[in-house]
Design a protein around this nucleic acid. Sequence first.
DNA 1: CAGTAAACGAGACGGTACGTCCCGTCTTATG
DNA 2: CATAAGACGGGACGTACCGTCTCGTTTACTG
Lengths: 205, 205, 205, 205
Amino acid sequence: MAEKKTERDDAEPADRADVNTRVRRSKEAVLTVTLRLMFEEGIGGVSVDEVARRSGVAKTTIYRHWPSRSALLVDACSRLSSKPEVPDTGSLRGDLAALAGRLAEQLETARWPTVLPSMIDAAERDPEIAATYARLRSGFSSPYGPVIERARKRGEVARTQDVSEVVAAIVGPLFYRRWFSREPLDKKFVKGVIDGTLARLKPKI
Amino acid sequence: MAEKKTERDDAEPADRADVNTRVRRSKEAVLTVTLRLMFEEGIGGVSVDEVARRSGVAKTTIYRHWPSRSALLVDACSRLSSKPEVPDTGSLRGDLAALAGRLAEQLETARWPTVLPSMIDAAERDPEIAATYARLRSGFSSPYGPVIERARKRGEVARTQDVSEVVAAIVGPLFYRRWFSREPLDKKFVKGVIDGTLARLKPKI
Amino acid sequence: MAEKKTERDDAEPADRADVNTRVRRSKEAVLTVTLRLMFEEGIGGVSVDEVARRSGVAKTTIYRHWPSRSALLVDACSRLSSKPEVPDTGSLRGDLAALAGRLAEQLETARWPTVLPSMIDAAERDPEIAATYARLRSGFSSPYGPVIERARKRGEVARTQDVSEVVAAIVGPLFYRRWFSREPLDKKFVKGVIDGTLARLKPKI
Amino acid sequence: MAEKKTERDDAEPADRADVNTRVRRSKEAVLTVTLRLMFEEGIGGVSVDEVARRSGVAKTTIYRHWPSRSALLVDACSRLSSKPEVPDTGSLRGDLAALAGRLAEQLETARWPTVLPSMIDAAERDPEIAATYARLRSGFSSPYGPVIERARKRGEVARTQDVSEVVAAIVGPLFYRRWFSREPLDKKFVKGVIDGTLARLKPKI
DNA sequence: CAGTAAACGAGACGGTACGTCCCGTCTTATG
DNA sequence: CATAAGACGGGACGTACCGTCTCGTTTACTG
């Protein structure tokens, strides 16, 4: 799905079906191998030569579709995006717990957190990667908007509360545990984060 | 063997003066250039050849002191550690504000945050780098222990409160802003983080 | 196969007018560009891609008409052949002087001598090119036969004289100057060659 | 021998023995393979990658010693030079016959004639190769000077006779047979060339 | 104060990867 | 059916860097 969109994005003029078929096949093979390599050995371990070797796609062809190794990585990374649905449990606590729980679980089990630091690092210097990263990032912060909005309507949150601060208050500590401390992301910790955030959000009477 | 001695040189003042002198001179020159390169072009821009070229120290010598490019980077990064003093303003809020304010400032102005993601990424796979990184990390989390302890004595914090959760609650959102959301780390945001944390720490009566 | 047909197209007027027209147009365009490229940058500078680019003829089409880059070059070169008329000045000296003078002039001013070494080189290994080259070569040696024959009738040349040796005696030194010694092909030199050859041809009384 | 000189030419400062040893070994291996390839498949068949593969010398190292494929070829070709001794049979005819006979034999059996057209072609555009070629060329024309000079002293040749014309008169037809006609370089032909040249050189009484 | 062992410089070397150019094949749509 | 358009696998080019490996040359302590 994400991939299809990518294809379309790339070939805006819609070209001709057959060409797209061949192109898609190549790109698919290349991106698959790229992601595999990325997960196995990190972004640094992805070399165009190796991708060519493993995918059976000629290096020339790879460079026909992506102007540089970097561009290939960006494209591959853009496949990582997970589009979480917005939970609706009826209460702010329930919604936040669902979001935080899901994130905590992903941080521990999914493969994309392995790669994220590489991206952040690359984004520090490469604006193109930065853009991709921004898109990826908005993926896991987007559900918070609707959740807070609903809570506002229910009177659980002050009208003035900034959403991005809530996101930071929940996602921040989780990410911190994952990358900056290396302590476990257990239920107790996640509950603490939610409790803290809720305590903070409690509307002043 | 050479390595072992090198290690010792680093940790302890001196074994044999002469050796230390020459070794130190070389290492110093190399590390200086390495850091400069790192800040200029990121970790990716640090190549042993370039370091040798700029520092005037032969590549051979560099490899005599560090077993790999990676090790050199780690060593250079370890110089970045800032050992923050423990603030003592008399109140928990004051102490946390001091710590958070200092960190926020550093995140925006200091040069080491530029490099951190590279380290985290490398740490994801290289245990040696992971160790160095852990040491570095403990630098900015260590002052929280004493601060919380004092607050506990003053009755501002429940006895059961886990320090690492407090660190996560404060440092987490700050880091999040720096690397994951790129929104400004302004005073308002920092104050929000402190408020939220305090709200959470408030001992249940 | 394609070649055979191509050959026929060249030799005969038309099977089906329209087809021949299109084929001829393509071939014409391709060969023109090929020759231009050849003269501009030498045989090494002729790449099928570049010919396609400049001529507007698709690479596919080029390969339909010529099985390889090499074949294209050969074909292009074969256009270089100049069919010199047989001079008839009344004397052997006059005839040979005319032939040698013309050749000397061409060697210095015409564009095909630039390319000849490439062909010779290629001919060293590629029999197809060798054949084309032979055809080309026979072009400038053919007039010597009639000239010598006439001289024989006039008694200027011994009956036993081998024509090919005369050709070698005249063309050889000229070519030598052009490619092997790079000294100028001036009138004096050409006259010397003719004198030498005549001295040699003088029939023993 | 030729090789030794080359080495010395390359490393004028005489450097250090061991380094030269290593360098010489590499260069030797590379040049040997290069020449082999050149004879097998012509200059066009020499690729740096292939040379690296066959010689076991890394491509990097090859490029350390020669700035380009072209330079490598030039160097390899310079090994082809045969330094013919100046014959002294007592008569001009004998000397020329010796020289021409030797050349005719080489043209048919030696390996360098295989490569010469490639060189001439390359020389047409590359001045560096042109220089090497000039050096090579002077190799087989140099003995004619002394031979003619001696003949002059014996009164066999006019004082005004230009040496280069003699060279052209002998070498020219031989080369012509080799590369431009493809007829055999038999004894009869060589004798004819010598006779013709002598007829021409006979001093006017 | 000479001898010695380390640290050092210089740089050759094999190797992997980069990104580019060209070759010749192929597939499909268009006239 | 010739053609335009262009993707594709493959090979070579020349460059940058990695980490290894000689070798001779300081340098400063020791005997």
